[in-house]
Nucleic acid binder design. Structure first.
Length: 151
DNA sequence: GCCAACGTTGGC
DNA sequence: GCCAACGTTGGC
């Protein structure tokens, strides 16, 4: 089983929205590295930290779980969608996604500045300079440390 | 609102 | 294949 961090802007889709919906399609990812993680590496049951970006404060707010196999993001075929990709075809889809389901909200969200203070977390991609990737792998050690921190 | 860092596009 | 121009991300 693997561990992940997935970013979302709370004014677009927050942990509360996920709690309400129970599960969601993680559509709209248009970055190859992030796509490859979903398409090639994610498996059902993988654990996900739900991260609020462009928030006040930004930080990890909840836990979710991968609950589908990867499949084509259908917004790439939808001319009316802002995620429409004219180069994608049904025969050769370019963008894949997974579904994630709500697990829980953290008792205490972990704000970004707190993450930066932790020696144990200093190698997280999230806090490397210029790192913008919206889906990132997390190590088991980091997962457990952050989980404890939130209690 | 600013802007640094990064990814993508497209002309050559 | 190079690289300038452009668009986006996301913290501050």
């Amino acid at each position: 089983m693997k561990y992940w961090l997935m970013k979302s802007e709370p004014n677009a889709y927050s942990i509360d929205d996920l709690q309400k919906d129970k599960k969601t399609h993680w559509d709209g990812v248009r970055n190859y590295q992030a796509r490859n993680f979903m398409r090639d590496e994610m498996e059902m049951g993988d654990k996900v930290f739900f991260y609020h970006s462009n928030a006040e404060p930004p930080g990890i707010t909840g836990i979710a779980e991968v609950c589908s196999k990867p499949y084509p993001d259908k917004t790439q075929f939808d001319q009316k969608s802002k995620y429409y990709d004219p180069k994608a075809t049904k025969e050769q889809p370019r963008w894949y996604l997974v579904d994630i389901q709500f697990k829980k909200k953290l008792k205490n969200m972990i704000p970004l500045p707190l993450i930066k203070e932790q020696k144990t977390l200093k190698d997280m991609k999230l806090i490397q300079k210029g790192q913008r990737l919206s889906i990132q792998p997390i190590t088991k050690k980091e997962w457990e440390y952050i989980t404890k921190l939130s209690e």
